[in-house]
Amino acid sequence: MNRLTRHLLALAVTAVGASLAVTAEARSLQITVTNNQAAGGLAITPLYTAFHNGSFDAFDLGGTASPGIELLAETGMPGTVAQERLAVDPDSQRLILGSPTPPPPIQPGQSVSRRITIESSGAVFFTFLSMLLPSNDHFIGNDNPLAYQLFDGLGNFTGNRTINVTGAQIYDAGTEANGLTGAAFVQGANIGDSPAGEGSIQQGLPLSDELFEPGVLLATGGSLNPALANFISNPGAFDLLTIEIEAVPLPASAPLLLGAIGFLGWRARRKATA
């Protein structure tokens, strides 16, 4: 075996080791959220995503909102819900996707991508949560913590996935009455105000008519188009968001590995025919 061949063989072995290490230890995913609304439509606060073992049940339709869901649904802040997640699954992970340009909410037409490496073998399920803007306490999320399984029992990725978030995933937390008082993302409204709400998490509650009154401006300076905010009449057809979950492409060592193996194969065939 000459010097060049030994060098390429060593390179191939190194690349194999690197590739196997990435496959076995680092499960990297890219998460992309796209707001499918047209201008004048609804926005969301930065999307909170969690990767967990299935024990993180963020909320239940008809139940009382936890302190974490209450804070997220009224302000978009996920700090308390993160504590609730870690309390039931200390090895779970989270990824937050917000607009790269201020303000942080994801506006109509915007798309945001981020990557995460899943380090815990038990983090096989996916949960998403965000506040709907503008509103008092409307939010989006998956009621069933087992709805989206990303990895099987052996740790294998189950495949790229697209989640279409519609009006069927829009909830009212029941923690604050709907109106201009306390509404988030509305100019002149004090988000700290919190009039008593319905008392339980519900679906099918529209946004307050007060949000569509003349002169009501959003934090961005525009106004909400009522024709784009009706997620009640046909919830399943109301196209709010798309969440895409994709495996990150092969590591940089893969092309090196293939090139080295290919060259070694070519040399072997050349010698055989010489």
Rank of each mutant, 00 (worst) to 15 (best):
D91E: 15
D91G: 08
Q93W: 08
R94I: 15
L95M: 10
G98A: 09
T101H: 08
T101V: 08
T101Q: 12
T101R: 13
P103A: 11
P104Y: 03
P105H: 05
I106S: 01
I106M: 01
I106T: 05
I106K: 00
Q107P: 04
S111W: 11
S111Q: 15
S111L: 06
S111V: 13
V112D: 05
V112K: 03
R115M: 12
I116L: 14
T117I: 06
I118Q: 10
E119V: 14
G122P: 00
A123H: 07
F126Q: 01
F126K: 00
T127D: 15
T127Q: 13
L129G: 05
L129R: 04
L132K: 02
L133T: 10
P134I: 07
N136R: 00
N136Y: 00
N136C: 02
F139M: 05
F139G: 01
F139W: 07
N144R: 12
N144H: 15
P145Y: 13
L146Q: 10
L146I: 05
A147L: 11
Y148L: 13
F151W: 10
G155S: 04
G155K: 11
G155T: 06
N156M: 08
F157N: 02
F157W: 09
T158Q: 12
G159A: 10
N160P: 06
R161I: 03
T162A: 14
I163D: 04
Q169M: 14
I170T: 11
A173H: 07
A173W: 02
